[in-house]
Design a protein around this nucleic acid. Structure first.
Lengths: 193, 193
DNA sequence: TTATTTTTGAAACGATCATTTCAATTAAAG
DNA sequence: CTTTAATTGAAATGATCGTTTCAAAAATAA
């Protein structure tokens, strides 16, 4: 029957992710994507539909990479403290190794496109729900273990942590001093204890 | 001698600010700016030099509007608690009235352009220095008044507040529930006391 | 091998991009 | 009123935008 896709979809998505991450959605041209992926224009359109569609897949790809990292770290954690610190350590690592100051693809996209593209807005809503649910689980666990206080509900602390992560990620674009970042995180987490 | 600029530069900057804020730098075309400002193309280039140059002026314009607001609120504050709360109230107000979810122009620009435009990077560095200096002043005052604790230095708390503000502003793009936001801020500020 | 179906490559689509050009217009100064 | 110098309007610049077209190439199933 038909000829089949010759390229590896994940590799292509990875290359596309790099371009979008570096230049942003509006800053990335289809030519950039052709160059980065070594795919032909028509192959991209044939396989991904449109620039926006490809970007949506890139977002999911990026998210699932992160999600897997998260799950792995969380599974290795004995208690809520370790879990929450594993998460923040992941971000510190991400920030310090982000040599060209791209920041977080998802956060960049949130600020660039949430008010322009309904698809992005709903992606961001789901992303927030997922993140907050995960954080709430950890906080609940920590509160049950009496490691975290109960001054605020798990849901409130989850929103606080979600917000703090976004702030950390934005701060990390310019500030890459590890000691400063670790101090910052210590301050962020203090309210939980 | 020469004919003089007929338009009001501040009005034009205001209109340009609205467009850039709504669409982002890369999402804004010169045609958008022509339409919004009712200026002719050549007048824009004659008066502002280039799109990037105009954007830099827009950033300064936006920043000075905010800065004035800040100074005013701070001058009206009796103590550090009032000062810090005045600042966060300003952001809550900004978030709640941001009906089209544009977020903060400066933060959006930071994530979109810091890694692409040296002029923007240095603007953001100066912006961060200014913000942190102001926050550090408030924290120092609060610590001297024994209102804030001394668990961390004023400089560390300032970075924490700066980071928290960015997080709050990002969170506010999707979450506009005032009670949630006020809870979030309460949690953020608790560490100071 | 042949028929079938899809992916490719290369070129072209019209629209829009940021910027420039230049003559016409305008307003202040002499 | 004339001179002078900057601001305007309108059109055009070449480049690039995202997307489409279509014939050639390729790979599977019969």
């Amino acid at each position: 029957m038909p000829k089949v896709e010759t390229f590896d979809r994940n590799t292509v998505l990875q290359k596309a992710t790099e371009v979008f991450h570096k230049k942003g959605y509006n800053g990335t041209s289809m030519q950039d994507l052709v160059d980065a992926t070594s795919l032909n224009r028509s192959s991209i359109y044939n396989s991904f539909g449109s620039k926006l569609n490809m970007f949506m897949e890139v977002l999911s790809h990026y998210q699932s990479l992160y999600g897997n990292n998260f799950s792995q770290k969380l599974a290795q954690s004995y208690n809520a403290t370790e879990a929450v610190e594993a998460i923040f350590n992941l971000y510190v690592h991400e920030i310090i190794n982000d040599n060209d100051r791209k920041g977080c693809l998802v956060i960049n996209c949130k600020s660039e496109m949430t008010n322009q593209e309904p698809l992005i807005k709903s992606f961001m809503e789901k992303n927030q729900d997922r993140m907050i649910a995960m954080l709430e689980d950890i906080v609940t666990k920590g509160q049950m273990e009496k490691i975290f206080n109960q001054n605020q509900t798990a849901s409130q602390y989850a929103l606080y942590l979600f917000s703090s992560i976004q702030g950390l990620r934005m701060t990390g674009i310019l500030n890459k001093n590890e000691e400063d970042l670790r101090n910052l995180i210590r301050t962020i987490l203090k309210v939980l204890y």
